[in-house]
């Protein structure tokens, strides 16, 4: 009895959906409007700056650490330090791969970054900080080479270009795993749960932020 009522209701709701999804017709997700303007990949070139881990997108040009050094010292060292050690809170570029398992990991280009192409891409798109996208491809190759050489990943005279850069093997190349679903399982115990309730750290002891009361 109930199940037949349910069937009728289901049929009715199906009819409702069928009726309403037809109107208005513009809500159909497959309708093509063509409000955009066609472009060719050539038109896009000035914006198409991304470089992939396989080197796709690297421009023509080349550089060595030697040629990159004066550019680095003039345009990068003020924030990152003459030796890539990082000034103030600006990031260090040189670091020890072994630090990643320590209490104070030093995540730098040398210790952490998996691809040299990312370094080229990032300098090219975002550096120098405050004057982005101002370096020539040769300068970007040179600065990339200088930072890699400071990390002892390449030699001072290694020539980086679209062919050689993707082949540079970074120390932490195999350090990443693609997240697959959640890695944490918790239960929702309601009563007499076995938890530690001793206060082990208190924010008032740190005084880095008082409360925001006026």
């Amino acid at each position: 009895m109930f199940s037949s009522v349910k069937v009728v209701l289901l049929l009715m709701s199906g009819l409702l959906i069928a009726c309403c999804s037809k109107t208005p017709s513009s809500s159909s997700s497959s309708q093509w409007y063509g409000f955009g303007t066609p472009l060719t990949e050539k038109n896009i070139a000035a914006w198409d700056i991304d470089v992939g881990p396989d080197g796709v997108g690297l421009p023509v040009g080349s550089g060595t650490a030697k040629r990159g050094e004066p550019v680095y010292l003039a345009k990068c060292a003020a924030c990152h330090g003459d030796f890539g050690e990082g000034m103030g809170r600006f990031p260090a570029l040189v670091g020890d791969h072994a630090s990643l398992t320590s209490d104070r990991p030093n995540k730098t280009v040398g210790s952490y970054w998996p691809y040299a192409t990312t370094l080229f891409d990032y300098i090219n798109r975002a550096m120098p900080f405050g004057n982005a996208q101002s370096l020539t491809p040769d300068e970007v190759y040179g600065v990339t080479a200088y930072i890699l050489a400071m990390n002892d990943i390449i030699k001072e005279d290694t020539v980086l270009n679209a062919e050689t850069l993707p082949k540079v093997k970074m120390p932490n190349r195999d350090g990443f795993v693609m997240a697959q679903g959640t890695d944490i399982k918790a239960d929702a115990c309601m009563h007499d749960c076995e938890v530690k309730v001793k206060v082990v750290s208190r924010a008032s002891k740190n005084r880095v932020t008082s409360t925001t009361k006026e």
Binding site: V51, G52, T118, Y122
Partner: peptide
């Protein structure tokens, strides 16, 4: 076909 491994998804 694949991710780009940008700085903000690696470093």
């Amino acid at each position: 076909t694949r991710p780009w491994d940008m700085r903000e998804e690696t470093s």
